[in-house]
Amino acid sequence: METNNQIRLTAPEMASLWTQYQTDTMNKCFFRYALEHIDDPDVQSIYRTALAITEQHIQAITEFMTLEQHPIPRGFTETDDVNIHAPRLFQDPFYLNYLYVMTLQGLTGYALTVSTSVRSDIRKYYITCMSETMALFDQSIHLMLSKGLFTRPPVLTPPDAIDFVQRQGFLTGWLGRRRPLNAIEIGDISFNMLKMHLHAALKVGFIQVAHSNEAREHFKRGLGIANKHIKLFESVLEEDHLNSPFSWQSMITDSTSTTFSDKYMMFQIQLSTQLSLSYYGSALSVNARRDIGADYLRLMIELLHFAEDGAQLMIKNGWLEQPPTASDRESIAKDRSNK
């Protein structure tokens, strides 16, 4: 029987490891910077745990790739991509919310990664990652609740009995009286708003500390898009007299000192855009009101254009690291014929 070391990593397994290396080296830079400024001992403690886990992940991925004889990605480093001694850019409540949203997104990513992994040691590794992230998620939401920093999603009045949809009017939304939102739609809108509020606050901070005008203008455009999406979601909830998550943009200080590299900030914004697209797509797939479905489609197209322009900017400046790619057989054959 072959051992794991003799079985080559599949493309999905390599993609997961490569992507995680990028995000974990990014997280390490952010966590190291955060720990220089966080005053709240509870938030300090959970960030120290998060940093230790992240460093373990980076080491494990390095070992997997070394055994595969795959070059270790560049990712992000404390030397090139963060000044941990820069003045404070974010307030303590923001740091706690940041970790909550990142663990929330990490759980989604790890669930997908486990489902696409075949080799037993890779499956075991990602199951461990999911367990660690779930514990961090639980700690972060517990702290947010205890400190009064978490906006609970809307609560619904229980119906008298179960019911079934009897009219196609359940699907309408453009003309006439719109039916109230159902629990599934409320949940998706609430959590998409919650994550978009974090993304908007990040862009506020990045606008202040960006080096190049191109990156700064890209972040300004992204902030406008995020705020527009938030207002749309708010208006949909308000129509049914439902509460919305609150903004975190006031949790940004007035620092303009060099804090992160433009490469780091562009990657962070690209990542948040890609994640928003995936969550919007998931919400669209279970949404039953036509007007909201049309809104999700329109917002996704806007995010797709923004992400494409971001990728073009990163390529132009040499900031976009190329993922593992299939061999170009045509080029190999052409090179062989020319020898």
Rank of each mutant, 00 (worst) to 15 (best):
R289H: 13
M265K: 08
A288L: 11
F64M: 00
D160M: 05
I58Y: 09
L237H: 08
C29K: 04
L232F: 15
D138E: 11
T23I: 09
A183V: 00
S247F: 14
S282L: 12
L198V: 03
T259V: 15
T157F: 07
R177G: 04
A161F: 03
A288E: 11
E78M: 05
I301W: 03
F191Q: 00
R74V: 12
G224K: 14
K147G: 04
S327W: 07
P87W: 04
N192R: 03
I230A: 02
I141L: 05
P93D: 05
G205K: 00
M193A: 03
F90G: 01
E78W: 06
R152L: 12
Y47Q: 02
S337A: 15
A333W: 12
H229G: 07
I269M: 15
V82Y: 00
F306M: 10
R178H: 02
C129N: 03
H142E: 11
R119G: 03
S282N: 13
G318S: 06
Q44G: 10
D80P: 05
M65R: 07
H229P: 06
N317M: 08
L136V: 02
P12L: 01
N338L: 14
I72D: 12
S146P: 00
L223I: 02
H305C: 12
G106T: 07
V101G: 01
M102Q: 08
E239T: 13
